[in-house]
């Protein structure tokens, strides 16, 4: 079995948003829609204040509420743990969006352009009518992951078959790999460090781990 997960080292993330930009470039998301974003969270009270940068997006839960509620079976969980959306099946009811506790799903009903009324050349070229009025979200760059089967490369290690956000991370804070593979990069990170997952109490078994300290 394979389960692809992402690991974000909160000690390393500097909030540069390069992953956000890389995701936008790789997936051509419309203005206002970011499948990967980095939150800037300030905690504590003066003088004990901390600032933490937290990458978020679809957590690719093992028990995803979005998949449970989807009336059209457009949202599916693949055998490798990636939660995907079939844009041709989706009816755009938005039920998955209200079921997701990570605010990871977006529905865009009308084409929006980055600068005024004139579309840029890249916006015209990469516009996808099939993604209008249906749910969309991070898919761990599944096209790249699927290419690994043909090339024999390893997702999370070889950049060609690794999500764009991970490739772009300049602080080496984002990692991707197969959690079920005992020799994988992410398994090693999870074994060597202390981690948590967001909103773990909701029981969705998210596939996104946050490192907060090394093992003691």
């Amino acid at each position: 079995m394979t389960r692809y997960v992402m690991v974000a080292d909160l000690r390393r993330c500097v909030g540069c948003q390069t992953c956000t930009a890389a995701c936008k470039h790789a997936n051509a998301t419309p203005p206002g829609v970011q499948w990967r974003q980095v939150l800037d969270m300030e905690t504590g009270t003066y003088p004990q204040v901390q600032r933490t940068f937290v990458p978020v997006g679809c957590m690719h839960c093992a028990d995803p509420p979005c998949e449970d509620v989807c009336p059209s079976t457009a949202t599916k969980i693949r055998p490798d743990g990636i939660v995907e959306i079939d844009y041709d099946l989706c009816i755009g009811c938005g039920y998955c969006a209200v079921a997701c506790p990570y605010q990871a799903r977006h529905i865009v009903h009308k084409r929006d352009l980055a600068y005024g009324k004139e579309a840029m050349a890249n916006e015209d070229k990469r516009f996808d009518e099939g993604r209008m009025s249906v749910a969309m979200k991070c898919n761990f760059c599944q096209g790249r992951i699927d290419k690994a089967k043909e090339t024999g490369q390893t997702p999370g290690i070889d950049p060609e078959v690794t999500p764009a956000c991970v490739n772009s991370c300049l602080a080496d804070a984002l990692h991707f790999g197969d959690k079920e593979d005992p020799d994988s990069n992410v398994n090693k990170l999870l074994a060597e460090n202390q981690t948590f997952r967001m909103h773990e109490d909701l029981g969705t078994d998210p596939g996104f781990y946050y490192i907060w300290d090394k093992n003691k």
Binding site: D68, S72, A74, I91, V134
Partner: peptide, 25 residues
């Protein structure tokens, strides 16, 4: 009202596809 809300109203019959777990279905 629901039909007015959904993004792809002409695919409305897809709502019947997931009785296994979807309360909407």
């Amino acid at each position: 009202c629901v039909w007015l809300e959904i993004g792809r109203p002409w695919r409305a019959l897809h709502v019947f596809f997931h009785p296994q777990s979807s309360w909407m279905t």
